[in-house]
Amino acid sequence: MRKFKEFIIEKLILICGIASIFFVALIFLFLLKEGLAVFNIVSPFQFLFGKSWYPISDPPQLGILPLILGSLLVTLGAAIISIPIGVGCAIYIAEVAPLKIKEVLKAGIELLAAIPSVVLGFIGMVTLVPLVKNIFHLPTGLTALSGSIMLAFMAMPTIVSIAEDALYSVPKNYKEGAFALGATHWQTIYRVMLPAASSGILAAVMLGIGRVIGETMAVMMITGNAAVLPQSIFVPVRTLTATIAAEMGEAVVGGEHYFALFAIGIVLFIISFAINVTADFFLHKRQ
């Protein structure tokens, strides 16, 4: 009887385990089935490197280069802002902050992670967008720059908490060793702690970027959504995610537009997958 119970429980857990993989596989298959159909209309090269996205003109022009560049530009901007601040914050929390401030900061970072992206987008729209417009004297504040700044806030919690964890797990005797050799605190951090934690910090950065590139709501609200090749960070851009979210509702099921949006989904899936695999690689290298 006891054996039978064990058997049932084991199998149940097995099913749970398989289920998650099964669903991922199903989603990916569905994405492929719907998305690959677009290549009956345009070649993969035209699709990826085509410069114009006019899905409802006749004939439709389905080039997603502006969207890819839009996503990359916004992500790159967010990375440039969030990586130094995030890593700096992690160093402060892990190494410098007194216990009380440390706890307040950690709670604050978690709170930042808990803000729904639509709320961040909304706040960005009413505060950041006019600010960017006035500072740079632009016709509109709905730009790639605004998106980058907003997304930096979303990447920060991930970067800070994982990088802080990586720094915290550097063996204490490295630090003692450096101090005993007459290194200052900063020399210890810069030359011993950071290199020792580097793979964990890289993983933190990759996961932060992964969060940014998949983000939809906030970017849709504040990047202006113009599907044109971006010339600078001061113009409106449209990202891959925002395109799907904005247009899926009006695309005819089974139409060319519909297939193209699924193909964008595949592109996003591949990018996120690559980022996660890279992050995973660094995380495992650490152990």
């Binding site: 005797n173 490295y174 060793g177 005993a180 050799l181 007459g182 290199p195 020792a196």
Partner: peptide, 16 residues
């Protein structure tokens, strides 16, 4: 600490 060097119980070379 520069003038008074210390060697620890567990060898702690840096990962370099």
């Amino acid at each position: 600490r520069r003038r008074i060097g210390m060697v620890f119980q567990k060898p702690n070379p840096f990962p370099k």
